[in-house]
Design a protein around this nucleic acid. Structure first.
Length: 604
RNA sequence: GGUUCCGUAGCUCAGUUGGAUUAGAGCAACGCCCUUCUAAGGCGUGGGUCUAGGGUUCGAAUCCCUACGGAAUCACCA
């Protein structure tokens, strides 16, 4: 049992004994003792004064004396209303032994009875390659899934691919007109990049047409603003794209074939990027399959009187009673909108899986959408609709503002990954650390470290906040970074290898009478916190908490490591303890970083 | 204009079930430490009216109100 829990129970007993009152455990406030004071844990006695009816100092002293009797606490001191407790040394060894015994310390096992959590993330459009914003989404989605699983949930990772609509038609049209039959295989381009290039190509020609047409309208005496609006609508390319969409919806075989072919190219490209990022899905939905599904549900809702129809035939939900607006669900021509599609997707998902909880990893620009979706799904009878989680994350901004595809300031995912790996490789080569590795090994370590840097950088920040990414400074490999954590891990692995080579066994059982230094006690305490950190991350699906925990732990360990030479320690008990401690720091760090999807190199 | 989110060191960020005269890291600047299990490391110096003002409390960066600053959203786009 954790020391904190033991202490809490002891404090409850103390209060019962001393003041004759049962106090619920939740009211016992134990926290880590500040560095300036002596002790490990501190009991805040202010809230207990009601029970003791004595002064803070007096109450604290009485409780302290009682705790000392139990043997849990070796010593204590009182500062104002704070009771600082020095935990008995043997307790730390016990605690470490407990952590050591559990290979997946802090994880809640998944059982048959576990709730099913579905996590939707990524959700790309098929007309463009993935960019930095998608990278943040994918990494968060993956991490959130891992965290949910570590908290004992059955997780289904899902991706809804937006594979239909006017934007895909634009790429298709441009490819037909300007492509000369170019293919990924023929050009050596990645499929998603190739299709993306034609999307840009469309936009280029389209803008030129709009400009010419608008000028023509102005000459005919139209106001500039009005002329541009009309030109945008009437530009021949746009008309053609719209025609193509209509043909698509009518299952025109030629259009459908081209659509299938180009989407296949894109999927191959996406798969490569997903693989590089180390993310994946259990079930993929395609909007072309789900976009018609929502209508039925909406009509059903209409019949139940949840929605209403306007004279022009469009269907709306009136949410004004909830403080929101009215929301369109079906256009006057009977076609679906975004919201309708999400309802349709929800319907299919619920048919496929017994969902207990749905988590949508989607950018914060859609906060309103999900607020509405939650209300609508609940009204339509989805049990998980009311407390669906919109895991909303902020934009990634560049030093000169937002990413804009029109201005070419988009940071491409594939390029970014390659750059990070190259950066890791260069740094390592310069340091000479790679000299005795095979080429294969070097490439693998560079990959792990480069991606570790990228992932950690994007995940350590509170997901809700907009964050800044500076590509020029690239990403640091020093300080609060992935590589720093990986480096410490690699060093510990190295120590353990050397211990083995020297015939030093990591003991199966720890000696119980080792005297620990303050630093070592702190590290054990920190290790034990991992379980609580995972639990906390699970509550609000927060990867950043895990990231920052790992950093703190590693930093603490590094400071310790600098003061001691483990292998040359002659006191066998101490050496044994330190080996076990190191081994478990490595273990916990691997578990923690694993939740973030960050791999750990054995050497670097 | 309505709604939601954010505002902590020059820069990037930690820090909420309210806690301790001195609010933490990293980067950047400056100084020290490699015959020592990996220097992608460690130690040190300088740098803050936690946007501002009020309120609640024994106690506020944290909770409430107001103002200011920034972002998102409010489409028969997705």
């Amino acid at each position: 049992m954790k020391i904190e829990n033991q202490l809490t129970a002891a404090v409850v007993a103390a209060l019962a004994e001393l003041y004759g009152q049962e106090v619920p455990e939740a009211q016992i406030q134990l926290q880590k003792t500040k560095k300036e004071f002596e002790g490990h844990l501190t009991l805040v006695v202010f809230p207990l004064l009601r029970v003791s009816k004595k002064k803070p100092e007096e109450t604290a002293a009485e409780i302290g004396a009682y705790l000392k009797e139990t043997g849990l606490v070796a010593d204590f001191n009182v500062v104002k209303g704070f009771l600082n407790l020095v935990i008995a040394p043997s307790k730390w060894v016990e605690l470490l032994a407990e952590i050591d015994a559990d290979e997946r310390y802090g994880f809640v096992p998944v059982t048959e009875k576990s709730p099913l959590v579905m996590v939707e993330y990524s959700s790309p459009n098929t007309n463009k390659p993935l960019h930095l914003g998608h990278v943040r989404n994918n990494l968060l989605g993956w991490a959130v899934s891992q965290i949910a699983e570590a908290n004992g949930a059955k997780v289904v990772k899902t991706n809804i691919v937006n594979d239909r609509g006017i934007h895909i038609c634009k790429s298709m049209l441009a490819w037909l007109k300007y492509g000369n039959g170019e293919t990924p295989a023929g050009s050596g381009k990645k499929g998603d990049h190739l299709v993306g290039d034609y999307y840009v190509e469309f936009d280029k020609h389209y803008r030129a047409q709009v400009k010419d047409l608008a000028a023509q309208f102005v000459q005919e005496g139209m106001l500039a603003e009005e002329a541009e609006e009309r030109a945008k609508r009437e530009a021949p390319l746009m008309c053609e794209a719209r025609e193509m969409l209509v043909k698509w919806e009518h299952n025109d075989p030629e259009v459908r074939n081209l659509w299938r072919k180009m989407n296949e190219w894109v999927y191959e490209g996406f798969d490569a990027t997903y693989k590089a990022l180390g993310v994946g899905f259990d079930k993929i939905y395609y909007e072309s399959d789900t976009y018609l599904e929502g209508k039925e549900k909406v009509v059903e809702g209409l019949q139940k009187g949840l929605f209403y129809r306007r004279p022009d035939g469009s269907v709306w939900a009136d949410l004004t009673s909830k403080g929101l607006d009215e929301k369109l669900l079906l256009r006057s021509d009977g076609t679906s909108v975004y919201m309708t599609q999400d309802i349709g997707t929800a319907k299919l998902r619920f048919q496929d899986f017994p969902i207990n909880k749905m988590v949508y990893v989607v950018g914060n620009e859609q906060n309103y959408h999900f607020q509405v979706l939650s209300i609508l799904l609940d009204a339509l009878g989805f049990s998980w609709g009311k407390d669906l989680v919109h895991f909303s994350y902020g934009m990634v901004e560049l030093p000169n503002g937002k990413m804009k595809s029109r201005e070419g300031t988009v940071v491409d995912a594939d390029e970014l990954i390659a750059e990070m790996v190259l950066q890791a490789r260069t740094t390592a080569d310069e340091s000479g650390k790679f000299d005795d590795m095979s080429e294969e090994e070097k490439a693998e370590v560079a990959r792990i470290v480069g991606l570790g840097a990228l992932k950690y950088f994007l995940l350590k920040v509170d997901a809700r906040k907009n964050m800044l990414f500076n590509p020029e400074e690239s990403i640091d490999f020093n300080g609060n970074t992935g590589p720093f954590i990986q480096y410490t891990y690699a060093r510990i692995r190295s120590i353990l290898r050397k211990a083995e080579d020297a015939g030093i066994q990591v003991p199966a059982e720890l000696p119980s009478d080792v005297a620990l230094s303050t630093k070592e006690e702190e590290i054990v305490q920190h290790l034990a916190d991992f379980a609580a950190v995972v639990r906390q991350a699970g509550v609000d699906y927060s990867p950043s908490g895990i990231a920052n925990y790992c950093y703190e732990l590693v930093k603490e360990y590094n400071q310790f490591y600098h003061d001691f030479s483990i292998l040359r320690e002659e006191d066998e008990d101490k050496r044994a303890f330190r080996l076990v401690l190191s081994k478990n720091v490595a273990k916990i760090v691997r578990l923690g970083m694993g939740l973030l999807g960050i791999e750990m190199p054995e050497r670097m």
